[in-house]
Design a protein around this nucleic acid. Structure first.
Lengths: 334, 334
DNA sequence: TTTACTAGAGTTAGCGCTAACTCGACGAAA
DNA sequence: TTTCGTCGAGTTAGCGCTAACTCTAGTAAA
């Protein structure tokens, strides 16, 4: 039987030190006027009793939890993990905890998560690549004290924003442009499922048309942002459209799935088929052929989002937006 | 100015419904005796006022936070992320939050984390691949109400355990045995830094000796469990010992770093140099040549650890240990 | 008719902490 | 000597919730 010994409370410390609770509280917070003697004495008692404040009680009074929520659609995707690492590192130094919530690409789950984080009274939330429509997302985050969105625009009064430098979907256009310039004629595109995916695809085609790049609606598909979905979708695309000489994938995991599919269909990359991913996860540079992809400074996206959130938590509700570079990194797959 | 509207409290709901606070509390918890009429009425008011209980207040009374801590040395390592995914998924269904803490391979940080989690009054902790010695770890976790360790043994009264089927370090021996049987004679080993690393290496050599596999202390090195360290360490090993015809790495990230190093030194895998990793992360099967490694059902390790922790949180302090399979998966790198 | 339950509530007393006010003593200025 | 300010505390009143007890009216058994 391992009985946990009862933790000392403020009252215990105060009694032992022969002072009032407020005096102890002041010593802990370094506020108010305390004589050096008293301060020293109280500190010794705190040390001796191994007193540490009860966060729940403090939260009840101050309405602050020193905890923030991080919501991402898939924590096994290295893209989000590296962002998370930046967030966690930053907030740890500030004495905050990070509550992790994985929506698993499920919008209903994301909703439930945002509500639960509200109950937990997190001081703020970082929402990464939300899968919710504005109609669903905005009311949910409006209830949170402080919000920062990553890869998503927000009305200025609702929260700050960290996004790519180029407008949504424009990355694919950049990729197509590059592929066309290097001689590819029939370019496939595997778009990622989002609440706004159809818009994306329309824009993509319009842009290609204006660049005089051949388009064909059958060359485009949409899939979940993971390896298996990329593999499955690319397999269908390659089998159904052997004429394709290039494929752009929404992110690296999908591209790597596509790479495996291409190999299975006997297509040689980059000779028969060029391939472009996105996000530059570690794996992209390690596979053979190394994957051409878009730069993404994930760790700093995380720390930047964290910094913006802390600013809002601190009461400074100035809207900020930060855009990160995402130019193409040419490797062996194109 | 976005003013958050004040959330309704139990007292607000009680007043509005014309009942006592306890009646509302009972309706929420589904405990005690309430007439159907009253229950229905209170529920409507709760709905109308969008009342949701304040977790901090509840915690203050019940001493339960419905939050658990997950401590891992590196959340960018897919190995830990997949375990975490299992943990998060399981606990989400049970209505728990997961506090993520990343020690960044830093023992001092891990200590601080375990103390902070104690302040936060988490209901339990899952400690993954702790970098602390028993002398440091055990007193820290003894203060937690419920603990499960992954990849680490614990005194039975302190917590349950999820580990590999084979004793620590034995994986490397299995790998060496396989390599020797397939004709390799000079086998290098890149061990991972742990608090117990030296013990590991001694055992490794003794085992090899008893299997009549050639040993040489200079063929063995130790490094941090990440790609870069694997690359650096393998580079030195390959440069300094061109006679090596096989390398065993502590985990897949290190093995992939070594694979890159081998390529740079013009060594062909598997012809010139065999390579074995560990943990079977996604990347291991995707690189060329595909990496021979050890199976590891990471997601289920996570859910199992979570299940064992929930059991302890529920008051059942029976010691449990669960061992997962870790046999070798032969791929192209050997 | 008295006793004894029981259903369906309500009342009381905190959990551990902090914000905001109060209070006495001492030294300096008027 | 009186007034006033300041130092160094202490006191009071909750934050929002729940555990544990109390209370009342109605019903069934003796």
């Amino acid at each position: 039987m391992a009985h946990k010994q009862q933790r000392a409370t403020l009252a215990d410390v105060a009694r032992e030190a022969g002072v009032s609770m407020m005096t102890v509280s002041r010593v802990i917070h370094g506020t108010g006027r305390i004589s050096d003697d008293t301060r020293q004495h109280v500190r010794e008692i705190i040390e001796k009793m191994e007193y540490r404040p009860n966060r729940a009680a403090r939260t009840l009074v101050t309405k602050r939890t020193f905890t923030i929520g991080f919501v991402a659609p898939d924590i096994t995707n290295p893209y989000f993990t590296e962002i998370l690492q930046g967030v966690e590192e930053f907030f740890w130094r500030e004495g905050y905890n990070v509550l992790l919530a994985n929506s698993n690409e499920n919008p209903d789950r994301e909703k439930a998560i945002l509500e639960q984080l509200e109950d937990t009274m997190v001081d703020g939330v970082i929402v990464c690549s939300s899968r919710l429509s504005d109609d669903e997302l905005l009311p949910l985050i409006a209830k949170h004290a402080a919000v920062v969105a990553v890869n998503r625009n927000l009305p200025q009064h609702l929260g700050s924003v960290v996004t790519t430098r180029h407008p949504r979907g424009y990355r694919a256009v950049l990729a197509a442009k590059y592929l066309h310039e290097t001689g590819r004629q029939r370019i496939g595109y595997i778009n990622l499922v989002r609440s706004i995916s159809s818009v994306n695809l329309d824009m993509f085609m319009r842009e290609l048309q204006s660049l005089e790049i051949p388009i064909n609606p059958n060359w485009y598909a949409t899939c979940q942002p993971n390896w298996q979905a990329g593999y499955d979708t690319a397999s269908q695309l390659i089998a159904g459209h052997p004429e394709l000489d290039a494929i752009i994938a929404g992110n690296d995991l999908v591209a790597l799935g596509a790479m495996r599919a291409a190999k299975q269909y006997g297509r040689h990359i980059p000779d028969d088929l060029a391939l472009i991913g996105g996000d530059d996860i570690l794996m992209a540079s390690q596979v053979t052929p190394a994957l051409t992809t878009f730069r993404s400074d994930k760790y700093n996206i995380g720390t930047t989002a964290a910094k913006l959130l802390l600013q809002r938590i601190g009461g400074d509700m100035t809207y900020c937006e930060h855009h990160y570079q995402d130019e193409l990194i040419i490797r062996e797959s194109t």
